[in-house]
């Protein structure tokens, strides 16, 4: 596979002016969401270090543009489902940072009342269906969410996210077949961050262009620079429109990069430090959006205001997540079955 850096045309060193059709308000909103996710994840990493968060904790730092751009293309009511690297998806869906962070600390104020943890969170109200710990399982479930839209005859679309590692699971290919066969309104998004835990995509996939993985079933597809939020948004709009129009599933491969290890305990020795440094310094999604906004005339004071607002939200979330009580011991026995 070509290095991600080679396939990307833009960069803040390119000197090119931003395209004229950029909506400044939308880009500012995207910048804020990406910054919120990054600061949230940095804080989560810090709380993990303090042992306030335990177990597995998979951070989304570096990949923020993918979920932010995708979310900009959907409507209220459209479903979202993803893997265990889910904090960013929840924030982008409009779930509260407090409730997500309190779930990470295993407290009663968490979205799952402390019973799910980092990998298993849901919000019926925000149409977020998890948060799934088993690699690839959410892809079949995403088909079911899309199926329910088809069954009910509404025009909702489901966004089904998974990593390039999950893309090799058998049920993913079963799901491609089913979705194409039944013309389900699903956008499959492969977040290709190049490493499934410590195994690079080149060592795991015989397929060299994952966006073509749906080709045998005739699934329309595109590849997009996952470090560029506007590029993701543009690709997402095409994909979502096709699904909403009843044309069946669509597959997007977003080429992205995670800055941290697979989970908190992964030292990420399997990749050269230069690769990470290059992505961070040349292709960071937040830096790029900021650069575009600067070219649109957004001044330092506006950035400072967003920074301050985000910082306050995260601090509030961290405070809440530590102040919220542990679940009542009686919670051990609730929600095993729906009673009555």
């Amino acid at each position: 596979m070509a290095q991600a850096a080679d396939t990307r045309k833009r960069g803040k060193t390119s000197g090119k002016a931003s395209p004229p059709d950029i909506d400044r308000t939308q880009l500012l909103a995207a910048y804020r969401t990406m910054l919120l996710i990054r600061r949230f994840e940095e804080k989560a990493g810090q709380l993990y270090g303090m042992q306030l968060i335990g177990g597995f904790c998979h951070l989304y730092i570096g990949q923020e543009a993918v979920v932010t751009g995708m979310t900009m293309a959907i409507n209220e009511g459209d479903e979202v489902v993803t893997s265990y690297r889910d904090h960013g998806h929840m924030l982008a869906c409009g779930m509260e940072a407090r409730g997500v962070m309190a779930e990470l600390t295993g407290r009663a104020g968490g979205y799952s009342r402390g019973k799910g943890g980092s990998m298993h969170m849901f919000s019926k109200e925000r149409h977020f269906f998890g948060g799934h710990g088993i690699v690839g399982a959410q892809v079949s479930i995403g088909n079911g969410l899309a199926f329910s839209n088809w069954y009910r005859g509404n025009d909702r679309v489901c966004l089904t996210y998974f990593g390039e590692g999950a893309s090799n699971q058998g049920q993913v290919f079963e799901s491609f077949n089913l979705a194409a066969l039944m013309k389900l309104p699903t956008v499959f998004i492969i977040e290709n961050n190049k490493y499934g835990m410590g195994t690079s995509v080149e060592r795991a996939s015989a397929s060299h262009d994952l966006s073509k993985n749906g080709t045998p079933w005739g699934i329309a597809s595109a590849q997009v620079d996952g470090m560029d939020v506007l590029a993701v948004k543009a690709a997402a709009e095409v994909a979502v429109a096709a699904c909403r129009a009843g044309k069946g599933p669509y597959l997007l491969e977003a080429k992205t990069y995670r800055y941290r290890g697979h989970s908190m305990s992964d030292p990420a020795r399997y990749r050269p430090r230069e690769e990470l440094q290059l992505m961070r310094s040349q292709h960071d999604c937040i830096d790029h959006a900021r650069h575009q906004l600067e070219e649109l005339g957004v001044d330092e004071a506006a950035f400072k205001a967003i920074d301050d607002e985000v910082k306050a939200i995260i601090q509030d979330a961290a405070d809440f997540a530590q102040a919220s009580p542990e679940p009542d011991p009686a919670e051990l026995w609730t929600n095993v079955l729906v009673e009555g």
Partner: peptide, 16 residues
């Protein structure tokens, strides 16, 4: 395709 259609049915049930 038991794995695929079972997961799909589970997703439909989660959605009501």
């Amino acid at each position: 395709t038991e794995h695929g259609f079972t997961g799909m049915a589970v997703g439909a049930a989660l959605n009501g």
